[in-house]
């Protein structure tokens, strides 16, 4: 293990700011996996995910001077990744939400899924998530996996908070159905 692999985030960021290529490579290696998968889940397209991940890291190295250390560098890079991806989807006109009749999706109406259908198979869930329609897939990922509140998701996607909630319920319903079918 080399010294650069063991240094702290703050030191690594400082070296990157100074143009240290080894440090930049190290920062990239630490976060590329997580960022690629985040972008891939949001776009559901491998080619787009590769292009966007590259764009994200180019932006990260360009704007590293603006990182103030108010969050972890990982969280900061994640924000860059999410914003870059959403801008891409917006330009590609892929942020459209399919209208959902909220009365059809009361939480209490959710059919329970046999746990054995998806337990111990995160890959199946991952694949099913990739098959969700754009709008509800975005909401599901941003809310459940990236931890944004519905209020924040609504702001990011330019929708209302209630739309965000209904899209989330729709995503769960479709996901369960897919997992049941797969079983």
């Amino acid at each position: 293990m080399t010294a650069i692999e063991t240094i702290s985030e703050i030191e690594l960021v400082q070296l990157c700011r100074n143009g240290d290529e080894q440090a930049q490579r190290q920062l990239y290696s630490r976060y590329v996996g997580a960022m690629f998968h985040t972008v891939l889940r949001l776009t559901a397209n491998r080619e787009d995910a590769e292009d966007l991940t590259q764009e994200v890291f180019i932006k990260v190295f360009e704007k590293l001077d603006s990182f103030r250390g108010e969050s972890t560098v990982g969280a900061w890079i994640k924000r860059v990744a999410v914003n870059t991806t959403l801008n891409f989807l917006r330009q590609a006109n892929r942020l459209k939400m399919v209208a959902v009749e909220s009365q059809n999706l009361p939480p209490e109406a959710e059919p329970e899924v046999d746990e054995t259908a998806w337990a111990n198979d995160i890959r199946r869930i991952h694949e099913a998530m990739g098959e969700l329609p754009d709008g509800c897939r975005l909401v599901f990922n941003l809310h459940l996996l990236e931890g944004y509140r519905h209020q924040d998701v609504a702001q990011m996607l330019g929708i209302t908070e209630s739309t965000s909630k209904t899209q989330y319920m729709r995503a769960k319903r479709i996901l369960r159905e897919k997992l049941m079918v797969g079983n």
Binding site: H37, E50, T53, I122, H126
Partner: peptide, 11 residues
């Protein structure tokens, strides 16, 4: 975050 192969070097 580890399910898909990441083309780390190429990127």
């Amino acid at each position: 975050d580890h399910l898909e192969p990441v083309p780390e070097e190429a990127m």
